[in-house]
Design a binder for these strands. Structure first.
Lengths: 197, 197
DNA sequence: GACAAAAGATGTTCAAGAACATCTTTTGAA
DNA sequence: TTCAAAAGATGTTCTTGAACATCTTTTGTC
């Protein structure tokens, strides 16, 4: 068999990385297969050697966020990989609601980049989306102080808040208002989690 | 001048209503002008007598939610128009996070229906989006009990939560999980607002 | 070194759709 | 009743893009 299996895998990964970047910025529909392949340094024809249809890329692009190697800059900048417990949970919140994340259109979390696209998509994409969400819920759940309600419940609420806040910030088209939304959401998350600012 | 001004206005409104419904369900890109016009009982050609470009419809479709006549069923069912203060604020939250809203793909709030589409759109759509958000913030702000933080801040956080919760619920593709997200978000909103369940 | 199997490139098909040009219909005003 | 201005219908253009068919290149195996 010519072209080693790793080679194909690498190419496939390159395609997915290009797709995620372009999808993140422009949405599923607005990006053509040709653009993605070209961005990955290939031509349009080879696409179907890796995927049966464009839709299959949606799922892969969403999962790339948690399967790709290494955190994004906006994550690395705010999260100390050695941190644990409350400190870690706070770092995740800070990273998520950071200006860096807000500005990083290419590398942002898929929960922010395409919620409505996924809501309209097929079960496969939704499943990928759910996985990303559950991963985030899990990260909070494991690092939340005890409270009157179950940790999962509070973790889910925190995810709702940070996702909602960033989604709104990205959509209002006003930097100052976006800053206000991010800052406000962060304070309220801290309150809800029982953390000091 | 043939065709009275009201007639034109009515037709325009019909186009916007069709557009909102179809956009809500399928997104801006996936719906063609022909489909919208046809849904409104017209043919594609007449579109440009009302709008210069398809993009102009995006803004109109978003604003239709707050400019259209009468609340959606999911709103009417949970909100007593005579209610005031905390009772009203609770009704708004209940309506927003209701199963009725979740199920109403055509009539849902634009903040839920197309956050990512708007985030990628031009300033005009974003401005419309902002208006819808500010209207919601205002509704909460005016009806929140006193607390240690400014009412606007807490109102903004509530909006982040309910929007985030519904956006996630719509995207996970699992009814049970969606129910959990809605219920959990609601409890946490009540906690955050200082309301009893 | 020849061979073949798979990756990737090139080229084609077909459909969709935005924009607009040009007809036809409507209806208020004269 | 006629006229004309604007709404709406019909028809056309041109571009884009998904899918796939068919070449060409690569490289491991014999």
């Amino acid at each position: 068999m010519p072209y080693t299996a790793e080679h194909k895998q690498q190419t496939r990964t390159r395609i997915i990385e290009s797709a995620r970047r372009l999808f993140n910025r422009n949405g599923f529909e607005a990006v053509s297969i040709g653009e993605i392949m070209s961005d990955a340094g290939l031509t349009h024809g080879g696409f179907y050697k890796h995927f049966a249809a464009k839709e299959d890329l949606y799922q892969a692009a969403v999962l790339q966020f948690i399967c790709g190697d290494g955190p994004e800059q906006w994550q690395a900048k705010h999260i100390d990989p050695n941190a644990k417990g409350e400190a870690l949970a706070r770092m995740i919140v800070d990273a998520y609601l950071s200006r860096d994340h807000y500005d990083d259109l290419d590398g942002s979390c898929p929960l922010i980049a395409f919620p409505s696209d996924v809501a309209r998509g097929n079960g496969t994409v939704k499943d990928a989306f759910r996985q990303v969400m559950e991963m985030m819920v899990g990260a909070f759940e494991a690092n939340l102080p005890k409270g009157k309600r179950p940790a999962r419940e509070r973790a889910l609420a925190l995810v709702s808040m940070v996702v909602g806040g960033m989604v709104l910030a990205r959509s209002v088209g006003d930097e100052d208002l976006a800053d206000e939304i991010r800052a406000t959401t962060r304070r309220q998350v801290y309150d809800a989690a029982g953390w000091q600012l």
